[in-house]
């Protein structure tokens, strides 16, 4: 099936041109980066923009670096970039661990981490990790630059805080020394959308940041769990306490990918295994990053 609708296409060289193109568009417009979601939606006739603004010719959107413990991820950084970056492996290993679970190489070579959170499907793999890393999303629009904390970013099913005339420029996250994990439930070993996922970050003070994916309309941070086990190593008792709280933190649904019950059960299993692995990794042992925990 071809893309059934025609549209205009522009490839601006600057952010200013790009935001102007979005603002000037009388109909609807879509921003194109990797296109792995957008082109599929165009083909499915799920979106019918009048204008597509390709941001790949804009300089300065490919940063992937750490300075003063703050990592910057530009909006054109692909999942492959994350996986191949030694900076990411050293400072933000959950990003590469999650990246490896995204589809397959041919998709990851194009798909961007920012595109992933702009599409904002409940199963987006970047969501829980960016929540656990307390990321900020930086945007530019007609009124200039602004930034949105990731927890305010996801506002609903496939809905974000981005206004239609804004472009995401980059993400930032302040990274403590930490261990962590991204654990993803899939129906089999091959590429799959998350049926449930958990991202866990733990620092040397046993301060935890825990977020779940695919078990609510948006990725969700599990503050209550974090508060309950803060400062304590993940012993059996602590894990049991955390696991007992999981179901009140999430609102999974039944769909053809999994039942709500299995999703909830697996969030418990993944949290239990993930807490152990995250703390081991913090200590420099445990399963290597990118090793599957389930």
């Amino acid at each position: 099936m071809v893309i059934p609708h025609d549209f205009e296409y522009v490839r601006p060289n600057t952010l200013e041109e790009a935001t102007r193109a979005l603002a000037d568009c009388s109909g609807s417009a879509q921003v194109l980066a990797g296109g792995t979601d957008l082109v599929a939606w165009l083909r499915d006739d799920a979106v019918h923009p009048d204008l597509v603004v390709d941001i790949k010719a804009i300089d300065g959107l490919r940063d992937l670096a750490v300075a003063d413990r703050t990592m910057t991820v530009g909006s054109l950084v692909t999942f492959t970039d994350l996986m191949e970056s030694s900076v990411v492996a050293e400072h933000a290993p959950l990003l590469s661990e999650a990246a490896e679970t995204v589809a397959s190489p041919g998709i990851r070579n194009r798909a961007t981490v920012v595109g992933n959170i702009c599409s904002a499907v409940p199963s987006c793999d970047a969501g829980p990790v960016l929540l656990a890393y307390d990321a900020h999303v930086h945007l530019v629009g007609p009124e200039g630059f602004r930034s949105v904390p990731i927890e305010a970013w996801f506002v609903g099913l496939r809905q974000t805080a981005r206004r239609e005339d804004e472009i995401v420029t980059h993400l930032t996250m302040e990274l403590p020394t930490h261990g962590g994990c991204y654990v993803k439930l899939m129906r089999y070993g091959g590429e799959d959308l998350a049926q449930a996922a958990v991202a866990i970050v733990v620092d040397d003070a046993h301060d935890y940041r825990i977020a779940f994916g695919a078990v609510a309309p948006t990725p969700v941070r599990a503050h209550a769990v974090e508060d309950a086990i803060r400062g304590r190593a993940p012993t059996e008792d602590v894990i049991a306490e955390a696991v007992a709280m999981v179901r009140s933190e999430i609102s999974p649904i039944n769909d053809l990918r999994a039942t709500a019950e299995y999703r909830a059960h697996m969030c418990e299993v993944m949290l239990a295994r993930g807490l152990v692995a995250a703390d081991q990794r913090r200590n420099g042992d445990g399963p290597e990053y990118r090793t599957r925990l389930i």
Binding site: T36, P105, G106, N109, R110
Partner: peptide, 20 residues
């Protein structure tokens, strides 16, 4: 699958105009 600048992509998910 094709190689685009030596990396694999899904040519069904790439607009031809992007490949200029």
């Amino acid at each position: 699958t094709v190689l685009l600048d030596r990396r694999t992509v899904r040519s069904c998910l790439v607009l031809a105009v992007e490949v200029e």
